[in-house]
């Protein structure tokens, strides 16, 4: 299913995006057996892959170790290795569709990359900032209006009713 996804995204053409190349994002997991101090070398090898295809980096996040939600496995020297954590990072870049496919092929070959995902995206930041809860505009003034509306008729009623009440009290 993933395979078909990638192919359709890479082949879809829109005139608007053709003018300035295409924006792709590749997310990847680096195998956790790479020690932390050698992670920099891995990152630079990924950068080399992108540079080779003349991709322009838009934004990126360096890989950080995180737990995976399920066990993944990758064949390594004829044996399956199981992983429960990996270094997850991503790079957003601009490239031609044919170059993007070459980049994808290079990621597939890399033995240190547990899993990757190439998607088509947009230049702007797609992550949402944490939001402050906001009230609907219509709710706040409504509440105040109600208060005023409640007070005015009460006043009128109280004056006449007071007289009546006094009269009634005297008559008794």
């Amino acid at each position: 299913m993933e395979e078909t996804n990638k192919v359709t995204e890479a082949t879809v053409d829109t005139a608007e995006e053709k003018a300035e190349g295409k924006i792709y994002e590749i997310g990847y997991h680096i195998v956790p057996s790479v020690p932390e101090d050698k992670l920099g070398a891995e990152v630079s090898s990924i950068k080399d892959i992108l540079e080779k295809q003349k991709a322009v980096v838009v934004s990126e996040e360096s890989p950080k170790l995180r737990q995976l939600t399920y066990e993944m496995r990758k064949e390594f020297a004829g044996k399956y290795q199981k992983y429960n954590s990996a270094y997850f990072g991503w790079v957003k870049f601009e490239a031609e569709p044919t170059d993007a496919l070459k980049i994808e092929a290079a990621f597939k070959k890399n033995p240190q990359i547990l899993r990757y995902l190439l998607i088509k995206t947009v230049r702007e930041n797609t992550m949402t900032a944490p939001r402050i809860p906001s009230y609907r505009k219509s709710e706040v003034p409504k509440f105040e209006e109600k208060k005023e509306a409640d007070q005015t008729p009460k006043k009128e009623v109280s004056e006449t009713e007071l007289d009546k009440a006094i009269d009634a009290a005297i008559a008794e």
């Binding site: 993933e2 997991h29 995976l68 939600t69 399920y70 993944m72 990996a86 899993r115 995902l117 998607i119």
Partner: peptide, 13 residues
């Protein structure tokens, strides 16, 4: 579904 594939979200929790 992408997040699940990348192991960021579970298929079944």
């Amino acid at each position: 579904k992408r997040a699940r594939y990348m192991g960021l979200l579970p298929y079944i929790a």
